[in-house]
Design a protein around this nucleic acid. Structure first.
Lengths: 216, 216
DNA sequence: CTCAAAATGTTGCAAATGCAACATATATTT
DNA sequence: AAATATATGTTGCATTTGCAACATTTTGAG
């Protein structure tokens, strides 16, 4: 792929990108759908940047309870140092949702001064700052959603975010089952609530197509 | 205060810090307890770095529902661009929990190349990268907590985080009322659950002093 | 196309939670 | 020290939710 298409390398020549790959200890890997991009039990301090495709971060606790922690698409950044301290020792993995390409960078190399003090290096740090800022934004957004008390409020808030992005009529960017995991609700309870929301005239829903009818 | 004590300026001389303050359009302000550090309805793109003291980000929705979104102490970084898209138009403020000192930086100035390509500038960007990485970590942790389905699980997970940090016996870093807001639960329901947890021998609690008795 | 697997839809029921309303305790101000 | 505001503790009750169990539909592999 052309690296220059991705934010991360904005303003950096392809030549310099390749040069930096060494200075950063960067490696690009491809994964097919369903493959494990990384397992947080053994990644160390690597930071991953999604260059192409999409993936999701899945936590499975000791009871087999599955939760979608994050969703990643091109330009998103992830890694254990950017995630959480896995207190409970749950299994946490990043799984490819589609075929994807990921660049892994040693975290220590990012903030460490490049001996050559190369311009592209600091440029990349700047760019990465932008990516991670975007990440905090989406994490905050997720917290906003989860902070709502009822399932209905969670859904409405999420739908409003989507509506703002794609218009009042949009497609769910994930499966319904995944949506339940995303808002941390029971799937059947969520489905039930979605029905009620249609009855109450808040939304219209047909498969993944959703139309937001009210803004409150 | 001595700026060199704070991560943000690690490896940068005090002299350079002052020089950069101009190049970054940085301003340091002090706030007394209870004062509004910033209101997300009119901050624009400023990024705040907490130099001293602590503050909390509070959201109040149209129903007067109050939620603690984040807690900030020295070294923490915050700002609208690092937060969320306030879809519902709720009131969101950062309020000083104690007397505090905050440095405000124009977000655009951070990633923008410094004309003088000054070394300290890129150094600071590196440092800020570290701060924001720490932020994503605490946000992720909060999501972990909120993703638990029952109040008991939320509390236990949070207590485990605290226990890991301070030992199995520790003081709550916030009031009980605030804790309820933090885990997004009803205060009375949470208090009830805390009682049950004591009866069930999971914790011992005396005022803000908590002892974690089991790890599950 | 056929079949199996995964996703989705539905329902009853028990448990958890939010809410309101109140009592008590602690902190802060004057 | 008194008065006021704020924080904390408690309880009944209606609602929401999770859970289990099952039916139906869609998807994907062969």
């Amino acid at each position: 792929m052309k690296y220059s298409e991705i934010n991360l390398f904005e303003g950096i020549s392809e030549e310099d990108v390749n040069r930096m790959a060494i200075c950063f200890g960067a490696k690009v890997k491809k994964f097919r759908e369903g493959a494990t991009v990384c397992d947080y039990s053994d990644t160390g301090d690597d930071v991953g940047v999604m260059l192409e495709g999409s993936a999701s971060m899945i936590r499975t606790d000791e009871n087999g309870e599955v939760a979608v922690m994050e969703l990643f698409s091109a330009g998103d950044i992830f890694g254990e140092v950017l995630a959480f301290s896995n207190e409970a020792g749950d299994s946490v993995k990043v799984v490819a949702e589609s075929e994807c390409e990921v660049m892994f960078i040693k975290y220590g190399q990012i903030t460490k001064r490049c001996e050559k003090a190369c311009e592209p290096h600091s440029r990349l740090v700047s760019n990465m700052f932008g990516l991670i800022a975007k990440k905090t934004l989406s994490l905050s957004q997720r917290i906003e959603i989860l902070s709502k008390k009822t399932t209905r409020d969670k859904l409405m808030y999420y739908f409003q975010i989507l509506a703002k992005r794609y218009g009042e009529e949009f497609d769910l960017p994930m499966s319904v089952t995944m949506l339940a995991a995303y808002i941390c609700a029971d799937r059947s309870a969520m489905t039930r609530e979605l029905s009620r929301m249609q009855v109450d005239g808040l939304i219209e829903m047909n498969k993944k197509r959703i139309k937001l009818k009210k803004v409150a």
